[in-house]
Simulated scan of single mutants.
Amino acid sequence: MARYDKEEYAKMMAKGADWLDAMQAAGYDVSNQESAKRQKRNLDKNKGLQNRISELKQLQEQKQANQATDAKPPKKLSPKEYLESVYNDLAQDPKMRMQAAVALLPYTENKMAQTGKKDDAQQTAQQLSTSGRFATASHQGDFFASVVTQ
């Protein structure tokens, strides 16, 4: 059973398609030439459909005019901006988005600054002084106070 879609017919006619092709795309039976011509005459008499076709033509002309005026050269993206656009594009393949995220990581996350041997030794000593068997007396007092209250 054929589906008669007047909106599809109107879109095809607005694009400038032949009436026979438009009817076929809309689902009309065009195997019989006389029947197709009769259907076309009926569609031509339909004022609502003719108004819709002219409306679609106007929209298409406006769209083309806007594209002509908005035809600016594309902005050149920095590597970081390009990776961000790929990562944020949900239509992209998830694998590509993941690769972009990994490549973008050095641009967004700060690298830990290297410390010298003396700084590392001082940090280790501070950690050991707050816990473990080498804890200083001030920290042991905190430890024993928490044990007594429990």
Rank of each mutant, 00 (worst) to 15 (best):
L59K: 15
A113V: 02
Q126K: 15
T69K: 14
P79N: 14
Q39K: 08
Y28M: 04
R133H: 08
A36V: 03
L105D: 15
D120L: 10
Q62S: 07
Q33V: 14
T115K: 07
L56D: 04
A36M: 09
D89I: 04
S54W: 00
K118G: 01
F144D: 12
L128R: 14
K80E: 13
L59W: 12
M12R: 15
Y107K: 01
Q50P: 03
Q127K: 09
A100Q: 00
A22R: 02
R3W: 07
D120W: 07
S54L: 11
H139N: 14
A68P: 01
Q33K: 14
G116T: 01
G27M: 04
D44Q: 15
V102I: 12
W19Q: 02
N88R: 10
R52H: 04
A17C: 05
V86E: 03
G48M: 09
A65G: 01
V147M: 11
F144R: 09
L104V: 06
Y9V: 07
S85H: 01
L49D: 00
S31W: 08
D119L: 02
K45L: 13
F144M: 12
E109P: 03
Q123T: 09
E34F: 09
A91N: 08
A101L: 08
P94K: 07
A22L: 00
F134A: 11
A17R: 07
N66V: 04
E109S: 10
V30R: 01
E55H: 10
